[in-house]
């Protein structure tokens, strides 16, 4: 579904990604773990070109989206993204947050977009907050809304950039539950996270990234129980 070839990214003289080759298959749940500054978020943001790669290609459904001639807005509609800091639009109600893109981009009638948004809100238990503003919600509620906002575009793949890192510990669970539901329904997911429990439970495949490279990858049981790379062994000994 997404094919990444020899992806590199530099900010000035600092090389953050040093050649990544990866393939994301339909329906797969890929969890990316690793130390801060190892390039996890940059890798994820390169997948929908929020960061422009310095070198290499990202292919989505057989189309090279790093080609300047390809219409990136078209591809982004199919790739939902959830941010660490939610990035809800504070000047709009929840319902307006959810319907903006479907109405403007997919040209859905407002009514139809609202029905879809309310159905999805219902599923995350927030139907009664449709007319609230983001500032009136808790962190966990905001992140659930942010997930719904991405889902309203009916994406084929969901990218999560540390979705629980900015939350109070007691709110982490409610967001992870929504993500687990999504996984069970068969959504293709790429998740950057520090939640090792989630990685183990939901991940089909775990990538360990450090120093701009994927140092080790495999099914969670293997990666967590029999880490090979010394850098991974060191990392796991500190976080678990």
């Amino acid at each position: 579904m997404i094919d990444v070839k020899n992806l590199t990214k530099s900010f000035g003289d600092h090389q953050v990604l040093k050649g990544i080759d990866e393939h994301i298959y339909p329906g797969e749940k890929v969890v990316v773990i690793g130390p801060s500054g190892g390039g996890k978020s940059t890798f994820l943001r390169c997948l929908n070109l929020l960061e422009t790669p310095t070198g290499g290609t990202v292919t989505f459904h057989g189309v090279d989206i790093t080609d300047p001639k390809s219409d990136i807005n078209k591809h982004r509609q199919k790739m939902g993204m959830v941010f660490q800091h939610f990035n809800l639009f504070p000047h709009m109600t929840i319902l307006k947050n959810l319907t903006l893109a479907p109405v403007q981009v997919l040209k859905k009638p407002q009514k139809e977009a609202e029905e879809k948004a309310l159905t999805l809100l219902e599923r995350v238990g927030l139907a009664d907050r449709a007319d609230s503003y983001p500032s009136q919600l808790s962190g966990g509620q905001k992140q659930r809304v942010a997930i719904v906002r991405a889902l309203c575009m009916e994406p084929e793949v969901m990218l999560f950039d540390e979705p629980t890192s900015a939350l109070d510990p007691e709110m982490v669970g409610e967001v992870l539950d929504v993500m687990k539901d999504l996984a069970r329904e068969g959504m293709t997911m790429v998740v950057v996270t520090h939640e090792m429990g989630f990685a183990r439970e939901v991940g089909d495949r775990v990538l360990f990234m450090a120093e701009g490279k994927i140092l080790e990858e495999g099914p969670p049981s293997e990666l967590f129980d029999h880490p090979q790379h010394p850098r991974l062994q060191d990392f796991l000994s500190k976080v678990i």
């Binding site: 982004r76 509609q77 790739m79 990035n87 809800l88 639009f89 903006l100 981009v105």
Partner: peptide
């Protein structure tokens, strides 16, 4: 992050400026 959120939903540059 506001503009990024807009762009990640598939809004183009002008739509993101106008609505977000």
């Amino acid at each position: 992050g506001q503009a990024e959120a807009g762009r990640s939903l598939g809004l183009n540059y002008i739509q993101t400026m106008r609505f977000v």
